[in-house]
Design a binder for these strands. Structure first.
Length: 345
DNA sequence: TACTCGTGGGT
DNA sequence: TACCCAAGAGT
């Protein structure tokens, strides 16, 4: 630890004391560390997800399940339904599993290494919980920290190879005390000032110490490998309506949208177009299509309404149309359902 | 390591 | 509009 490194964390913590965002899962200045349950829940929700998107879900979860014991006692289907729309549904599956583990052992583990063993808790989240909830010294590295550190030290190596150097630098500037506040300060800085595009260097408390700024244009850091092209897939979803109810299935497995309630479909995946025949056989009326873009594929999903009288073969349930908003459909199928109900009234 | 896995907002 | 991106984890 050099004198220069101390200046970075001290400067940033002073800035944080004045400018920290007031977020529902955070302690206010001067308050003790927040409830580990709320820290864990927020950190999982925030994985690859914006603060604005998380807020209403965090409020819903904490009001429905105020403690990890309450969440552990919930039906997994209830948890999946409550998560619907937030994306990356493996997080919800692991959330339920993790809650049961923690409830079984009585409390959250309070070290980074033990936290790391919990399902859905990786390197970042373990460090964040240890630092923020348990006030342990931990080096917390997320995409914000990567960006800020790459710019601070003018690291021009390409990601992901640059991660080793970035971690070493982050280790050097992380203070022994208040490392949780330091991590959250880095995230606030990355979110509002040291942004991916058009960073506001004139407002940055670290601008005088930023090697990337001295070297030229910090906005080009970190340098990332080129992205793969995104395949375009087509599929079909089936709208089977009877007596004010629609037939819904629950998707199997841990793959895409696994565990989520959904419209029956033709088996499309991110790797392949759908191919299954509409079941039960009969007359189908194409209502239209919805487009939806996933991380690694774009899907055009045609919605076909069943006009016959046979019963569905696939396992599922008749869901009342007037409570469709409570079905917990992921956004893709919510779009498809909206299309169908708009036409069939 | 490289790929899979959602969604909504910003530019 | 068509990208890019966001408090990553699991495999």
């Amino acid at each position: 630890m050099t004198a220069s490194d101390n200046t970075i964390s001290d400067t940033l913590l002073h800035w944080y004391d004045e400018h920290a965002r007031d977020l529902p899962w955070r302690a206010r200045p001067g308050e003790p560390a927040p409830d580990p349950y709320r820290v864990w829940l927020s950190e999982v929700m925030l994985q690859q997800t914006t603060v604005a998107a998380v807020k209403p879900y965090f409020e819903k979860f904490t009001s429905t399940w105020p403690t990890v014991d309450a969440l552990a006692a919930a039906e997994e289907a209830e948890v999946m339904g409550a998560w619907a729309g937030l994306g990356y549904y493996s997080r919800a599956r692991n959330l339920a599993k993790c809650a049961r583990e923690v409830a079984g052992r009585g409390s959250f583990p309070d070290t980074e290494a033990e936290l790391r063993k919990l399902p859905g808790v990786g390197d970042y989240t373990a460090a964040a919980i240890a630092a923020i909830a348990f006030e342990r010294r931990a080096v917390v590295i997320d995409a914000n920290v990567e960006r800020v550190v790459a710019r601070l030290f003018d690291i021009r190596e390409t990601l992901p190879q640059a991660r080793k150097v970035i971690r070493a630098r982050a280790e050097e500037i992380t203070p022994e005390h208040r490392s949780g506040d330091f991590a959250q300060a880095m995230m606030d800085l990355g979110s509002g000032i040291c942004t991916a595009r058009a960073p506001k260097c004139l407002l940055c408390p670290l601008s005088a110490q930023c090697e990337g700024r001295k070297a030229g244009d910090p906005a080009e850091l970190p340098i990332k490998a080129p992205k793969k092209s995104k395949p375009e897939r087509v599929g079909q979803a089936f709208w089977i309506e009877r007596d004010g109810h629609v037939w819904l299935v629950t998707r199997k497995g841990s793959g895409m949208l696994g565990g989520m309630r959904a419209l029956p479909d033709d088996g499309w995946t991110a790797q392949q177009d759908g191919s299954a025949e509409p079941l039960p056989v009969g007359e189908w009326n194409r209502l239209g299509a919805v487009k939806h873009v996933f991380t690694h594929a774009a899907l055009t999903l045609s919605v076909l309404r069943y006009e016959g009288t046979q019963d569905p073969v696939e396992e599922g349930e008749w869901w009342p149309l007037d409570r469709l908003d409570e079905a917990g459909l992921p956004t893709l199928f919510a779009k498809a359902a909206r299309l169908a109900t708009a036409q069939s009234g």
